[in-house]
Design a protein around this nucleic acid. Structure first.
Lengths: 345, 345
DNA sequence: TATTAGCACTCGCTTGTGTTGAGTGCTAAT
DNA sequence: ATTAGCACTCAACACAAGCGAGTGCTAATA
C-alpha cells in the first residue's frame, strides 16, 4: 500500500490507533509520549503525526484537537501492526462449556452462539445459519394438518430443521403420506437440497413413464415442498451494546444503527460476503460493501461441518473496535460451531 | 374512581390527552381553546386545568409550561373518554391478505404478524407463540443424528413445530425408531404436552409389567424428549420505532428501552399477564406490572385456536400512545391469528 | 355566580460573550 | 535530527440577558 512506513512512524501510528480504540478521544502528541515511553518529545511526535496525516492515515477533527485514525489508518493497523492476542482462557472455557448447548435444537444453538459472541466481545453478535439449499438432505416428514393442508418438515444432515405449509391439490391420507415419506427418505438422502430439486425435476419430466402412481405423487409433493427459497436465518444478539459506543450517542445515529440491525436482509447481504472465504475476514468501515452501516466494522468467519453446510458468524462494532480482542473470539467461535455441526452428523 | 368529573372537565381532559398524544408537548390553555372550539376563554380553561391537576389527572413539568396527563389521566381517558375507532379498511385489508402467510411455517407466521403489528401501529410489535406445554400433541418424530444422538421433533395440533436434541443411553437403529415413532403417534395425540408427560410417568411407574420392551423404550424415550421446559418463543418487531418517540430521545433512555426489548424473558413476563384474560388488555405505564419499562404502555390480547393453544400478541409504545388507533389493531390482529391457528388444524 | 380580561410573575430555551485549555505548527536553538 | 519555546486556533464550558409561552390571581363583567 504505497509508501512504506519507517519503524518510528509505525510505532506511533500503532500507539495512536490503540489509544483511540481505548479512549474514543482524539489523541494528542503529549498524551502519546506520556503513555508509551518512546524516547521522544511531543514536538517530534507532532512532526511524525503531521506526516502520517499527510499520508492519509490520520485526520484531525479540528485544529486544536488531537488526531484520530482514518479508515486507511485502521486498515494499515490491522494488516501490519496488529498482534492478535490469544483468547483469554476464561472465554475459551466459557465457550467450550458444552453443557450450554446440550439438548438444544440447532436454532437454539445458533441463538446461544450469538449471545456468547456479543457477551464476550461486548459488541453485537451475528450468526447466519447455513443456507438451507446448500445443506445435505437427511429426512423429510409430512404431517396432515387439515383437509388439503400439509406441514412439511425437512431435516438436514447437520441437524437443521425447517418446516413449511403447502396445499397440494389432493387430500392425502396419513397412510398415503407414510408411504410417500418412506419412498422419499430412501431415495433422497445424501444430496444437497439443490441437487434434490434438480433430480426431482429430471425424474418428473424424463422418467415419467417408469414411475408408478405413488412415486409420481411423492415426487410431485416434494417438488412443491421444496419450491420457493427458504429464507436465510440470522440471529442477532446484543444490539444494545452498539448504543453504548460513544460514536453512536446521537439519537440520529442510534436510530440509524438500530434500524440496520433490525433488517435481517441487510445483515444477510453483509454476511454473505464472507460465506465463500476461509478464516476470519475483516471489513473496516466502508469496506463492508453494501455499507448501510457507516462507522462500523465487521469481523466475520465462516463455519461448516465436514458435510459442507456453510454458515457465517461474526461481530459487528464501531470502526474503533478492539480488533486484537475480537478477532480471536470470532476465530475460536467459528471453529467451535464447526465442531458442533460435525458432532451432530 | 373517586370524584366524577363534569362534562366540561371531561371534554377538556380529553382534549389535553389527545393533543398531547399528538404533539408530545405540554399543552397550554390557549392552545386548547384554539384547537378545539369550546366556547370558553383560556382563563376558564386554566381554572378547570388547575382543578384537574389537583385531582391528579394532570401535572405541569414546570410553572411556565402547559400541562401533561399523569398516568391516572391516561387511565381515565382510556376507561371513560376513549372512542375506539374502527380499523381503517386499508389496514384491515392489508391484514386479511392471506397470501402473506401462504406456505409459511407457524414461526414465520408469528414473525410476520409481529412485523405487521409494528408496521401498522408504528410502535413495537410483540408476539408470543403458544406455550408449547399447553398445546395439543399431534405427532412426534425421531431422527438419528449420530451414534447415541437423536433429534426429536414435535408437532402440535396447531401446526407448531419444536425440536431438540437428546442423548439416550442406547443407540437406536432407524428401524427401531420407526417402530417407536409409530407406537407413540398412535397413543399420544389429542392430549396436551403436559398431559402426555403425566400419562407417561404413570405408565412407566405403575404399568411397567404390562409393557413389552419396545413400548417401554418408547415411553422412556419420549419421557426424556419431553423433559425440561421448552422455552417460550417471542417475536419482537420494530424496536427502532421506539427510538423515534420523543420521550426516548436521551441516549440513556434509548439504551434502557432497547435493553429491555432485547430481553426475551422480560417480554415473556410482561405478556404472560394477558395470557389468561379475554380480549384486549391495556396496561398503562406502571400498571404493566414488572415495570422494567418505565414510560411505556402495553396493549395486548390473547389469541387461540379452538383446540386451546393460547398465545399473546400486543403492541408496546410510550404511555403517550395512540390508544384509539392501536386498540383496534391489536384486537383485529388477535382474532386474525386465532383464525389462522384454527385453519391449520 | 360563572366567566373573562388584564397583569405580574415564572422559568425553560435561545443567543451571545468571555474564558479556558488542550493541542497545533512554526521557528530557532541544541 | 531533535527539541524547547511560543503564538495561535478552536471546541467546550459557563454565565448572563432577553424572549415568550404559560400560569395564577384579581377585579371587572354578564
Amino acid at each position: 500500500m504505497g509508501v512504506p512506513l519507517n519503524d518510528r512512524s509505525q510505532n506511533i501510528l500503532e500507539a495512536i490507533v490503540e489509544d483511540y480504540i481505548q479512549t474514543a478521544e482524539p489523541v494528542g502528541s503529549r498524551a502519546i509520549t506520556k503513555r508509551h515511553a518512546f524516547d521522544l518529545s511531543p514536538a517530534t511526535v507532532r512532526n511524525v503525526m503531521a506526516d502520517l496525516e499527510e499520508m492519509g492515515f490520520l485526520i484531525s477533527p479540528h485544529t486544536s484537537a488531537g488526531r484520530i485514525p482514518t479508515e486507511k489508518g485502521y486498515q494499515y493497523y490491522v494488516e501490519s501492526l496488529l498482534k492478535v492476542r490469544d483468547l483469554p482462557t476464561e472465554f475459551r472455557s466459557s465457550l467450550e462449556d458444552d453443557s450450554r448447548f446440550a439438548g438444544k435444537s440447532m436454532e437454539d444453538v445458533m441463538q446461544e452462539v450469538g449471545h456468547l459472541l456479543s457477551g464476550i466481545s461486548r459488541y453485537t453478535g451475528l450468526v447466519m445459519a447455513p443456507r438451507f439449499n446448500s445443506t445435505v438432505f437427511r429426512q423429510i416428514e409430512f404431517v396432515r394438518l387439515s383437509k388439503g393442508r400439509l406441514l412439511v418438515i425437512f431435516v438436514s444432515e447437520s441437524g437443521l430443521v425447517q418446516n413449511k405449509v403447502i396445499e397440494p391439490g389432493i387430500d392425502f391420507s396419513q397412510r398415503e403420506l407414510e408411504s410417500i415419506t418412506n419412498y422419499l427418505n430412501h431415495r433422497l438422502p445424501g444430496m444437497t437440497i439443490t441437487q434434490v430439486r434438480e433430480r426431482i425435476a429430471v425424474e418428473l419430466h424424463e422418467e415419467q413413464s417408469r414411475l408408478n402412481k405413488l412415486q409420481k405423487q411423492a415426487l410431485e409433493l416434494s417438488d412443491q415442498a421444496l419450491q420457493g427459497d427458504i429464507a436465510e436465518q440470522v440471529y442477532v444478539a446484543g444490539t444494545s451494546h452498539m448504543l453504548e459506543q460513544p460514536e453512536f450517542t446521537s439519537p440520529d445515529s442510534m436510530m440509524k444503527i438500530m434500524r440496520t440491525l433490525e433488517s435481517k436482509q441487510q445483515l444477510i447481504d453483509l454476511l454473505d460476503c464472507s460465506q465463500a472465504a476461509r478464516g476470519v475476514q475483516i471489513f473496516i468501515g466502508s469496506q463492508s460493501s453494501h455499507a448501510e452501516i457507516e462507522g462500523c466494522s465487521l469481523i466475520a468467519a465462516p463455519f461448516s461441518g465436514h458435510k459442507g453446510a456453510v454458515g457465517t458468524l461474526g461481530v459487528i462494532g464501531p470502526i474503533r473496535m478492539n480488533y486484537s480482542q475480537v478477532i480471536p473470539i470470532v476465530d475460536f467461535t467459528a471453529s467451535l460451531v464447526s465442531r458442533i455441526l460435525d458432532r451432530e452428523s
